[in-house]
């Protein structure tokens, strides 16, 4: 991996070419596990039926590109919203939407998937802030994904 200087969130990097054994399997088509639209946090309605009592994924934009098995290992059976804690405007609206998931849609769990870059931690902070001010308590899990798609950490946050 070649490294370039700068902010870890936007620093340029080129990963060494993966060998043939690293290539994604090509046997059969990989079926999408996405079961809703829209998915961007500004566009979603937190009261939509597919959020009611659901297990919800709140995913940083970059995660699905880095994590090879995102659909099978994380998206399957869950509802989703995506956001970028670094670039998105109007994050106070995000806070209210997450609170609304917890209190009104009565979601079952919230899993926050973020990249390892420091700015991504903002999405987990946002989820925790919303959970702290919500009336209901729910289990929140966070998963930290490395920039080459490896799972670096997967833990429950104290409810």
């Amino acid at each position: 991996m070649e490294k370039f200087e700068g902010c870890p969130g936007s620093r340029m990097m080129r990963f060494n070419s993966r060998n043939e054994n690293d290539a994604a399997p090509t046997v059969g088509k990989i079926k999408s596990q996405l079961a809703q639209w829209p998915i961007q946090l500004h566009l979603i309605n937190p009261a939509a039926p597919y959020y009611q009592r659901a297990d919800v994924l709140l995913t940083a934009d970059c995660v699905a590109y880095a994590l090879g098995d995102f659909h099978r290992d994380y998206l399957q059976g869950k509802s989703i919203a995506i956001a970028c804690p670094k670039l998105d405007q109007g994050q106070d609206i995000y806070l209210e939407k997450i609170k609304s998931w917890i209190d009104s849609a009565k979601i079952n769990t919230l899993t926050v998937l973020i990249m390892q870059v420091p700015c991504c931690g903002g999405l987990l902070n946002l989820a925790q802030q919303a959970a702290d001010t919500a009336k209901r308590k729910i289990p929140i899990k966070y998963v930290v994904v490395g920039i080459q798609g490896e799972i670096l950490q997967e833990e429950w946050v104290a409810a």
């Binding site: 979601i107 079952n108 769990t109 899993t111 729910i138 289990p139």
Partner: peptide, 13 residues
């Protein structure tokens, strides 16, 4: 599973 953890949490509550 994640789903079962959420269920257990609500049921305990």
């Amino acid at each position: 599973s994640t789903h079962q953890v959420g269920e257990l949490f609500s049921k305990f509550d």
